[in-house]
Design a protein around this nucleic acid. Structure first.
Lengths: 130, 130
DNA sequence: CCTCCCTATATGTATCTTACATATATATGT
DNA sequence: ACATATATATGTAAGATACATATAGGGAGG
């Protein structure tokens, strides 16, 4: 989001801080792991619960991530035309996809730990000044 | 960092996960708040303790962030030629800069909270599969 | 003197990611 | 007929990272 852009969320918001990483990749992986088989639109809805910022994930980013995952061998897909409405591309995780989720789990633990240190340092230096 | 790039860090690493956000902006602000007055190179060294990923912050990103902060009114700067060696551009936080740090503190708390939820969900779904 | 390294700032640019707009298409409700 | 929900896909500008490169002052060692 363009820096300084006004959004509808209350208080200082991640939306105004520039293009913060949205963790689309691990969120899509977790949603697929939960749903076992899912299409993009369904993942977009499930992902709202897991969004890292106050803004919902961009569906375009989700579709592109899924296509990239398929190129990388993390998911398999096939068209589902059995239901009424537009056709759905159904995705399921491969073993490589599950492994990638495991890797992300480890990385997330590291990132959270580092962010805690940063945030605590931030609070401390603000308190010292006041 | 290019996706899948090998790095020297042990185990699954944020370096291999694509261009993860490095939180350069809040890190530079915190370093400035700690050091009161500092130049870019000094911030780069202080920032290593606070880096969110295993890789140190890109010094180029730090210099560009400082110039942008000045445009935005978050810091003031002046050249320091009193010491031997190359001239240093000394930065100090303005009141607006301190306020921006406060905003980042709030955003970081939110982001950490959301990431915890994501990571816990990740671990749970991995355990359920195993 | 020359080379190497550290200090210090700055720019160039390819790639990645977000943000948002837009296009296409099927089906349902009013 | 029209709006809305479902569903996927592409286009593109702006933001951010990753890494290379350029410029310069100063100290250590051969």
């Amino acid at each position: 989001m363009p820096r300084g852009r006004r959004c509808s969320h209350k208080g200082p918001c991640s939306c105004e801080m520039g293009n913060l990483y949205r963790f689309v990749e691990p969120i899509v992986l977790v949603c697929l792991a939960i749903l076992k088989t899912a299409h993009g639109y369904q993942i977009a809805q499930e992902a709202e619960k897991l969004a890292v910022t106050k803004a919902p994930l961009d569906v375009a980013a989700i579709y592109r991530t899924l296509r990239r995952f398929e190129e990388m061998g993390f998911v398999n897909s096939n068209w589902d035309t059995s239901t009424p409405g537009p056709a759905r591309r159904e995705y399921t995780l491969t073993n490589e996809g599950w492994q990638h989720l495991k890797d992300w789990d480890i990385v997330l633990v590291d990132v959270i730990d580092s962010l805690k240190t940063l945030q605590e340092t931030c609070t401390n230096v603000l308190n010292e000044k006041a």
